[in-house]
Design a protein around this nucleic acid. Structure first.
Lengths: 227, 227
DNA sequence: GGCAGCTAACATGCTAGCATGTCGCGCACT
DNA sequence: AGTGCGCGACATGCTAGCATGTTAGCTGCC
């Protein structure tokens, strides 16, 4: 059993903490795709019983992060370009609908929040704080989604994106990408400020397709990674 | 405990059958919104233990069909116009993205399937078979979603729509609505045949907003239904 | 030497009972 | 009479052990 971070640092019921621990390990590939994931071992490692583990695995199965084969075993899902494409499609659908709505309905206060986030992103780029920038990036997108007024939308978008996020670990960092990302965010904000839904959709679509394009190139170059 | 249909007729594990039984009862309002849903009673009624019931309730909670309050109780979700709007937004986002994609990529074989479905719908309208028509309606939409090639899309769309579907039980049948629905389907298919993504989006949007519009009128007339 | 069948180990799914925290009712007090 | 407090009943969450079905390896046979 690979090293599994302890439950500390996660909140809520045991099942929820087990879920968080396992999900993180799957997403950062410390649990290898295709590996068997024995419930008994997880129980022993984390020091909990099998019910919370079962519930956590059920949730992960509903996100297609693990495959549960009845009476046979539970396996970490393999990287799948199919899943990546589907996840990207879903997030794109949600986020395009969101920017379209927000372009027509954003309040001044909301625009101010977005501008502030952009200023923060600029500072992080100047400081070359890549980790911080990606956090601000995620927050920027979540803001837009939450401005629709739909509470569960940000979470759904995150869930849709998990397979893309996992596959992204295989990409090497590309110098200058953060700067381009910042520029794309500027274009989205500009379209929102102009209250132009079509431009907002276009800018968002362009932005979201960057990662997937790079992944498509990767799968072409090294198809064995997506067995 | 209201009458709960037996597990027979559902396939898969016990948990899955319990899930199906409960979901059906919640959706057709035979489990009253706001009612308490005791695990123990469900176990006794269905003759199963608490693990499968717990798993089923966890899934229902993730769809916001029940509220689980730790150490307090489980409650059938109340009807909520918020949830209806969010569900409608989600399905619209997914289905607009789907028709846009399909308009550009549909094969002739797929168009033939859709035309065949429309012919079936016409026959059902002529025979005034409303139930059959709604089944064909659902199938028509599922076809379009599946033509994107994304396997889980139809299921996600169904899940998104559950709150709308539940609230729809409150609407009285409206004479002539099936005819209008058929006409709207014709418009969607026409746009797909013309390979016109913009028109397809427009026709789909118009179509999907019909139910929500009627629900908005209902909540205005009888707000107490959505406590 | 290769293949088929069997057996044994072991995976998950389910059942039953214990620990923990909450809510509501009743009683005493103000 | 109204209010605050305390206790009891009971809800879910968790733990531990049993039933069921699969898989892999070994053995015997061809």
């Amino acid at each position: 059993m690979p090293i599994l971070r302890s439950l500390d640092g996660y909140a809520g019921s045991l099942a929820q903490r087990v879920y968080g621990t396992l999900k993180e390990a799957i997403l950062d590939l410390s649990l290898k795709p295709g590996a068997i994931l024995r419930k008994g071992e997880v129980c022993a490692t984390l020091g909990v019983s099998r019910s919370p583990v079962s519930e956590a695995l059920a949730r992960l199965a509903s996100e297609a992060l693990v495959d549960v084969v009845p009476q046979a075993g539970t396996f970490v899902a393999r990287l799948s370009m199919e899943e990546v494409r589907e996840g990207a499609f879903l997030r794109e659908a949600l986020e395009l609908a969101a920017v379209e709505l927000v372009a027509g309905a954003a309040t001044e206060a909301q625009l101010i929040q977005l501008r502030r986030s952009l200023r923060l992103q600029e500072a992080l780029v100047e400081d070359a704080d890549v980790g911080g920038f990606y956090a601000a990036d995620a927050q920027f997108h979540e803001m837009i989604l939450s401005f629709t007024g739909h509470r569960r939308l940000p979470g759904l978008s995150r869930t849709a994106w998990v397979h893309v996020d996992r596959a992204r670990r295989l990409l090497l960092p590309e110098p200058g990408r953060v700067g381009e990302t910042l520029e794309e965010h500027r274009a989205i904000l500009a379209a929102l400020e102009a209250r132009d839904p079509v431009a907002a959709r276009g800018a968002t679509r362009t932005h979201l397709r960057q990662v997937v394009t790079r992944l498509e190139r990767l799968v072409e170059a090294r198809p064995e990674l997506f067995a």
